[in-house]
Each structure stands twice: as structure tokens, then as C-alpha cells.
Amino acid sequence: MPLTITFRCPPEWADILPRPLPAAKGLPEWLKEMPANAKSALIGEEVRTVKQCPPFLDAMGSGWLMPLMADIEVKDGHFSWDWDLPPTRFEQLHRSPLGLHVSAQATGSPLAQDGEAYLKFSNFWAVEAPEGFSILFSHPANRPDLPFQTLTGLVDADHFTHGLTHFPAVWKDQAFSGKLPKGTPVAHIWLVPRAVEAAFGTLTDGDACRFEETLEILSSAPGGYRKKFRAKKR
């Protein structure tokens, strides 16, 4: 049976908030427009670009993207917005699409960099995972083009089913000026099973044969992984 992840929001905001999006439907324009092949100055030959790399694409297209709740204007290091949400029954729920962290919270870690702003993207969707699964929240996969870096966290969302997880981030592009549009992906989420154990072995007997066959498939022609091993996507 397929697993189900459930997103819930205040009913008064159901038609206002942008919804989490299957990541396969939120691929960036640069990926769609980039060439499949390019000339390498280093080796003097044409090579296949990451557009033809299934693991690269599948990382970007799996899971769900959590959206920015409202348009954010950025100018001279200041962040502002004009967003008027209607009242909701939940009186303790704040209504700001963006919050701040103080830089001291990163003291002693490589995250502490002078001049960088520490943000918290607000999320108004409570996320429920299937029993036995946690949810990994991280920066949108392979998206260094975004002017921020979302930090990575893991939430036991099969227990924490009706709370809100917000997304801390470091604002990286100090020269950015303009609008960060509503719906911009600010976090990427994946289901992670908790009950996983490791086993170790050696490539002998039948495993050795399968290993050699796999090497042959991958070396004989481009696209071996995609044609023989990649799971069918729904």
C-alpha cells in the first residue's frame, strides 16, 4: 500500500496559503532549460550534463517542497512584506511569514559567519507522517541558486502530528535586492523510516557475479542505470 503524508492548516487559511508541492512539479526553470550535453574545456570533448544524471534528478524530484507563505521584499539587508491574513480560531498562532534567529545561536559552529542574517521561514502546515517514519527537512536539493541556505532537521512527525515545524535558514546572498516570491521552495522534505539496521558482507559467489554484471551494464553504454535499475516513478 502507498504511504500517505498528511498536511493540515487552519481552515480560515486553506484557500490562502500556498500548498506543499510534490517536488517533481516544482523543478526550477534552469534545469528545464540547461543543455543535455556540453563541451568540456578540460578534456576537449562533449560530456553529458547533470540533466542526464538520474540520481541528481531524482533527488530534486522526490519528496515535497514547502513553500514561502508570502512575497518578501528584500532591500539593503531589510526584509518586509504586506500580507493580511484573516482571523483564525487559534489565538496563539502568529501570522508572520518570516522570523529571525539571533546570530549567537550559531556560536561555535561553522554556521556563524559575520554579516549573514539568520532567518526562520514560517510554516503553517502541520505535517503528519505514517507510523514509524520521521520527516527530514532540508534545503531544496541541488538549489544553490536560492539566496538562502535552509538548515537540516529531523522531526518525528508520526508523533508530532499537529504541531508546526518552521525552517531556519542562513541568508547567503548579501547583494540580493528585490522580491522573493510567494511559493518559492524554502524547504525540501522526505520520509525517513526509523527502524533500519545495517548488514555487512563481501562480494563473493552470486553477489560477485551480480556485481560484475552491473559493472558491465554501466560501462557498455550510457544510460545503463536508468534503463535497468531505476525504479518506475509514479
Rank of each mutant, 00 (worst) to 15 (best):
F167T: 10
K32V: 00
A129H: 06
Q105T: 11
G224L: 03
E128R: 15
D114R: 14
G178N: 10
G206M: 03
P87A: 12
F176A: 07
L93Q: 08
T6N: 10
Q174T: 15
W30F: 13
F167E: 05
G132Q: 09
V196T: 14
L100V: 11
A221N: 07
L27T: 03
M66E: 01
R234E: 10
P144N: 02
I72K: 00
R19I: 03
K120E: 11
S138I: 10
E213P: 00
S80M: 11
I5K: 11
G115W: 12
P55H: 08
K227E: 15
R8D: 11
F90C: 04
A231D: 08
A14F: 04
I135C: 00
D114V: 12
P35M: 04
T214N: 03
D76N: 14
H101K: 14
F211G: 01
V47D: 06
G115P: 07
R8Y: 03
A195C: 04
A117W: 07
P97S: 09
T4H: 13
E216G: 05
H94D: 12
A199I: 03
G223I: 08
W83D: 09
P144S: 07
H139V: 08
E46R: 06
P185S: 09
C209S: 14
L164I: 13
R210P: 05
L180S: 02
M1R: 13
G163Y: 15
D173K: 09
K182D: 00
H162Y: 14
Q105W: 15
K232P: 01
K120S: 09
E116Q: 11
R230I: 02
L98F: 08
P10G: 05
E197A: 14
G132N: 07
G63V: 12
I16A: 06
L27Y: 01
E91A: 15
V74C: 08
S80F: 08
F229A: 01
F167R: 08
G63R: 11
E216I: 08
D114P: 06
P185I: 13
S109K: 11
R226V: 13
K32G: 00
I43A: 10
G61Y: 01
Q92M: 13
P110I: 04
A112P: 00
E216N: 12
E91M: 12
L68T: 03
